[in-house]
Amino acid sequence: MKEYKFKRGSTPDLDRIYECLTEAFSSDIKKEDEKLITSYGILSSLTVWIDNKKLVVDTVSDTSNTDDTVILDSNKRFRDFLLSATGYTAKERLKQAKKAVSK
């Protein structure tokens, strides 16, 4: 489970996050309580919700799938989802993670 900050201008709104999920993944998205749940490629479960104005993402990977094209496609779509949802690039998210650990 990982938490991501929202960049200024990216609102912590579950409906907007739902739209980001539908853009990134071409799979069914279920809404249970205040959580969005889907699966795609090697991500057998992808659960997303908002807690304390942060995006919380919990993933479960299917390690039995060894097809490189599926793995790369799933990872790219996941990164694209995080970019559109949080407003931060992978580099910026890495900087924030390092900063949080050093505190």
Rank of each mutant, 00 (worst) to 15 (best):
V56K: 13
I42Y: 01
T47C: 15
E23M: 02
L55R: 13
K31Q: 14
T22C: 11
Q96C: 08
T22W: 08
R16L: 15
R79T: 01
K76C: 00
T86L: 14
K31M: 08
F78N: 06
S45M: 14
T86P: 12
S61G: 10
E32I: 13
S61Y: 12
S27F: 01
T86R: 15
R93C: 06
L46C: 14
T47I: 15
K31P: 05
Y40G: 00
R8P: 03
F81N: 01
S44R: 14
L83N: 03
K35W: 05
S10Y: 15
N52Y: 14
D62P: 08
Y88D: 09
D28I: 09
G9R: 08
V48H: 15
I17L: 12
L94F: 12
P12E: 05
D13W: 12
T38C: 05
D58M: 08
F6M: 07
V70C: 03
K98D: 08
R77K: 15
T63S: 14
V57A: 08
K98C: 09
K95I: 12
V70Q: 04
L94C: 09
K95H: 06
S44Q: 14
Y18A: 11
D33C: 08
W49C: 14
D62Y: 04
E3V: 04
C20W: 03
Q96D: 13
K54E: 15
L36F: 07
L82P: 02
K76R: 06
L14H: 04
T89N: 09
S45A: 12
K95G: 10
K7E: 06
V48M: 15
L55C: 11
K30L: 13
S64I: 04
E92K: 01
K91V: 15
T69S: 09
L14E: 09
F25N: 00
L55Q: 12
S84N: 13
D15K: 04
V60I: 13
T89Q: 08
